[in-house]
Write a protein that binds this DNA or RNA. Structure first.
Lengths: 328, 328
DNA sequence: CTGTTAAATTAAAACCTTTTAGCAAAATAC
DNA sequence: GTATTTTGCTAAAAGGTTTTAATTTAACAG
């Protein structure tokens, strides 16, 4: 690999000091009273030889990397992929750049990554946390590292948070099944983990079902199982309880629900899922969705993180963003 | 933010030199003849105070970041998301860590990102390139930066490449429509761009259709259009040509095809797509798929990149990985 | 022509590592 | 008892920036 030019190469070539070059390159020429003529000469030379400052050295000196880590469970989930896009857009406009990490359900890996990036002086973290991450996130907070959680808060972590109106969304979705779809027996499918967004959704479902005095029918799926097992469990859940409607707490559960319905030719037509998926509008029966306001979530997340980085945030912010029903 | 410990803090605290600490921390204690007792003392102290070396300084000194950039068009595409997972896994096992970048169709952004990461001394690049990136990738190559392209080669770039057997896959898929599904009029839907993997797939389709003397029926979609427009174009394509089967050159085209079929109640049942999507098994009619061997692609990509990084690669490698038909 | 102020530039320290080359003390050889 | 080798450790340079504090040169006042 060819040796890269350094700022002192430029300075030597032009017979001036490194300091001068640095000032000019950082737009401080005027402030530092570098003459117009020299400024121009340096800029032209730098352009001509294609010199680019070494960002590692820059970061080492300034302590800033202009990079933000975005840590999610599964970047292939369209919800997270979409959020990632919007967050990247927003951050980019402020001169920051996003490093994604997708950690599936490997908590150990997540912890390692957080530490790794902390060691690399990342300027801030945006995290959709799993429960096991409380400790490592608390360490970040104690060290004063800017952090924003989204999608789900952690009970034992007092960090800035942006979440969706989970309870209201699930309530509305369930009411839709009750009132528009005239459902009589509505099952609720969630995961075993006690992630708080899931709790909120369960609350919303319960509130709606309770309001008409209907039975609560809840299935908790262990997401680390194979898909086939999940499919069979869902079949049993539907059949055993004679369900005529289901509310899925999240999109990948709904996908497995659809697999069960198709595989076992189950007669159930009234379906709602939290979050979207390309399949929902294409299948028969279609799946209605509670769609989160992704651009708004992204906007809030970035706003809060940048405020933290720039040191203008006193109290802990907890933002709740509305969501809406896509009826199908 | 609290001041971080540095290696010289450790050295001072223990009354020894920085060099010694560095040697011990880098596992060179034995080689450099540091006594067992001192080694142990340092290790224990480092653990106790929780010192972590500053990776920026380390990278600045060594010129290695142990990071690899993975640049794809759209990380929410299950094909890329899946590849990303496997590549990350592989790289991780060798002590490398992956930075994803998803650049949609923003070529300018892609170029900026490549330069940005080059400036940050990334150890290597894994890229699913779009055509416009030829120049910037050639610059990387000229500078001796390790690069592997995958999914699609670039005609004017002589880089290591890992691709799927596109032509064979499309040929098999088309023959499946002909022989198993008894299709009579098979349309081929691709994108306007001349990405080479798309060309290969078109070739495969043509070869199969030619072999039975059937008409070539090809539609090129401009992917920067709105989905609704694409849907309407696909309806026209299907109706105008009285198609009874379609081969979609990639999964997101198939999704729009399904939208068209559903929206306009089109009577077409014989569908094949390159790449998978969760919807394919769930919709009626289901979509058969040409599934790429993702673990193998990831394995090859990482192997080649690491060989480059470690300087043990002479000639340019072009690897072709087989794919297989998932009949539905 | 001297003294003061302003303008233009720079030397050197700092950020935190790794690594080369070398030193002092202890051990061994003769 | 001296010469050589081995052991255990370290000083200092290098990697490429930014930034503080200082220095030189030019301009101006008297």
């Amino acid at each position: 690999m060819k040796k890269r030019l350094s700022i002192s190469d430029i300075a030597n070539d032009l017979g001036i000091s490194v300091t001068t070059v640095s000032f000019i390159l950082n737009g401080k020429a005027r402030e530092k009273r570098i003459s117009e003529s020299l400024t121009k000469r340096v800029q032209e030379y730098v352009k001509k030889v294609g010199y680019k400052p070494n960002q590692l050295a820059k970061s080492l000196r300034t302590g800033k990397t202009k990079s933000i880590v975005l840590l999610v469970e599964d970047i292939s989930n369209p919800f997270f992929a979409n959020i990632a896009d919007h967050i990247e857009q927003q951050a980019y406009e402020h001169g920051y750049h996003i490093i994604y990490c997708s950690v599936k359900n490997d908590e150990q890996r997540a912890k390692e990554l957080i530490n790794l990036f902390y060691d690399r002086q990342i300027d801030g973290f945006i995290i959709a946390p799993t429960e096991g991450l409380s400790d490592v996130i608390n360490v970040l907070l104690k060290r004063g590292v800017p952090v924003v959680l989204f999608d789900r808060p952690l009970v034992d972590v007092d960090a800035h948070t942006v979440i969706t109106e989970n309870e209201k969304g699930a309530f509305d979705g369930t009411m839709f099944l009750l009132q528009e779809k005239k459902a009589k027996r509505i099952g609720f499918v969630t995961i075993t983990s006690s992630q708080s967004q899931m709790k909120g959704r369960l609350e919303g479902y319960m509130k709606a079902v309770d309001s008409v005095g209907m039975d609560l029918l809840v299935k908790k799926i262990n997401p680390s199982q194979k898909d086939e097992e999940v499919v069979d469990q869902l079949r049993d859940f539907i059949q055993d309880n004679k369900l005529d409607a289901i509310f899925f707490a999240t999109n990948y559960l709904a996908i497995n629900g659809l697999r069960a319905i198709k595989k076992y030719k189950l007669d159930i037509e009234k379906l709602v899922s939290f979050d979207e998926n390309a399949a929902f509008e294409l299948v028969v029966p279609p799946v209605s969705a509670i769609s989160q306001n992704i651009p708004e979530i992204a906007k809030q997340v970035v706003r809060i993180l940048l405020s933290q980085i720039n040191g203008k945030l006193e109290s802990v912010e907890k933002v709740v963003v509305p969501c809406k029903l896509i009826a199908r």
